[in-house]
Amino acid sequence: MNFIQQPWPWYVSGPMIAFIMFLLIMIGKNFGMSSNLRTLCTICGAGKSTDFFKFDWKAQKWNLIVVLGAIIGGFIASNFLMINQAVNINPATVENLQTLGFQSAGTAYLPTELFETSVFTNLKGIFLLAIGGLLVGFGARYAGGCTSGHAISGLSNLQVPSLIAVIGFFIGGLVMIHLIFPLIF
């Protein structure tokens, strides 16, 4: 039971992700989460004005069900499988985050400064989450995939485009955290 309640180490988590991809391949599907964002656009009617969203979204229904499962999985894991949710990050990272004003570093799963409900009355917080989401959605579709589609599926299939995309992910992430964070926090 103790093992169940602990966060999983990388050598359990990584193989689990590979196993999930394996299951999807073996039922004739593929592992890619960001395409669901496109499906959601189509369901909202984006296909009426933009060709990119004109496709039979029902063919992607299976992936939306996977998303529904991911939501349920998050509920199960956070309520029943993990009592202590504080993420045990490197003390050096905690110290660095505290200088940026993230007092919750090392004591929570997500920074309370951005993900507590009080953020709904905090204009800066809303703005940052919105920009983050916008960049993720735009970038994932532009690059033709996200972490699951490129970093796991694409690289597993030895695709050079996926390698370029993953290099891009890291350039973007490093720029954000090392150059932009000191300006915005």
Binding site: L128, L129, I131, G132, G133, L134, L135, V136, G137, F138, G139, A140, R141, Y142, A143, G144, C146, T147, H150, P161, S162, I164, A165, V166, I167, G168, F169, F170, I171, G172, G173, L174, V175, M176, I177, I180
Partner: peptide
């Protein structure tokens, strides 16, 4: 892939 990847990475790190 490069441009899209960079934009994605910026958002991934922020959100």
């Amino acid at each position: 892939y490069l441009l899209g990847g960079i934009i994605f990475g910026l958002g991934w790190a922020l959100a």
